[in-house]
């Protein structure tokens, strides 16, 4: 890709990700509960996946040859739903019904009610196993589709994650790419203080995975890592993405308190104003 084209692409991602971040704030604000911190930290990864990497068809969400995505950290449904709506899987206007009794947008991803959701998740540690199953099925059927999963770093405390990683390497699932949203925070505080999973790269390598480190907010690095993953044969790839919890909203950044609480009206207005200001700067760039 030439430099000018890449620059334009990155600008498109920035815009798209900012719009998705605005949706996240509106979703959680209107729900009165939810998980903005981790949703904002994985937004840039989801943007590259759905608007660059993955082969999906919003008009045919269950297309059997599609690439799959599993949000193993299912509590970040606001980010996934916003991305899917922007991609055209369902109307953007529905996003504000998240978590309402009459809505199809369940608090955690539901594959049977939300178009574009490939696996129901929410209980940490299980999504990565389901992704392993999808990749295994793809190998068995000699299909070309690829499977992507997104893990939280606190989620690594679940033993099942390691069972799944072991199985993926054992079956040489090079059609599987997992992202670690490495924002360093969980509900009760820093992951290193609650129950440290570090050094994560060493552990992933020991479990037979290829590891690529990226800045999880740098679109070029994410794209390059995904391109390298496609070239990797015989083993699954873990992209360790260093991220900032609450990224894009100044007062939510790096604050564990925003893991699972909704903004009030004043906070919502402030967040939206910040994101709008960023968007208008992008326009004049």
């Amino acid at each position: 890709m030439d430099k000018q084209k890449l620059k334009e692409l990155v600008k498109e991602f920035r815009k798209k990700a900012t719009i998705i971040r605005k949706h996240i704030i509106e979703e959680v604000y209107n729900a009165g509960s939810g998980h903005p911190g981790g949703s904002l930290s994985c937004t840039d990864i989801l943007t590259v996946l759905y608007f660059h990497e993955m082969n999906v068809d919003p008009g045919n969400p269950r297309w059997e040859d599609r690439d799959r995505f599993v949000l193993s950290k299912g509590h970040c449904a606001p980010a996934l739903y916003a991305t899917l709506a922007e991609k055209g899987f369902f109307p953007r206007e529905d996003l504000v019904t998240l978590r309402h009794a009459d809505s199809y947008l369940e608090g955690h991803p539901n594959m049977n009610t939300v178009p574009g959701v490939d696996m129901s998740t929410g209980s940490l540690g299980q999504g990565i196993s389901a992704a392993v199953g999808m990749a295994l099925a793809g190998k068995l059927d000699r299909k070309d589709y690829r499977v992507y999963a997104l893990l939280g770093d606190g989620e690594l405390q679940e033993g099942q994650v390691w069972e799944a990683l072991m199985a993926a390497a054992h079956y040489k699932l090079d059609n599987l790419v997992a992202f670690l949203d490495h924002n360093g925070l969980q509900i009760d505080g820093k992951i290193t203080e609650v129950m440290s999973p570090e050094v994560v790269e060493d552990k992933f390598r020991a479990f037979g995975w290829k590891v690529i480190n990226v800045n999880g907010h740098d679109y070029v690095q994410i794209m390059e890592a995904l391109a390298e993953a496609r070239k990797t044969k015989g083993k699954p790839v873990m992209i360790v993405a260093d991220t900032i919890k609450g990224k894009g909203v100044s007062f939510m950044e790096n604050a564990a308190g925003w893991h699972g609480s909704a903004p009030n009206k004043e906070q919502r207005d402030r967040a939206i104003a910040e994101l709008d200001e960023y968007l208008s700067k992008l326009e004049v760039e």
Partner: peptide, 20 residues
């Protein structure tokens, strides 16, 4: 799937989601 029953059940779910 080795001695890892929890993983086995969720792997089974992933395979089933692909028509198995």
């Amino acid at each position: 799937m080795g001695i890892a029953e929890g993983n086995m059940m969720a792997v089974a779910a992933g395979m089933a989601s692909c028509g198995k």
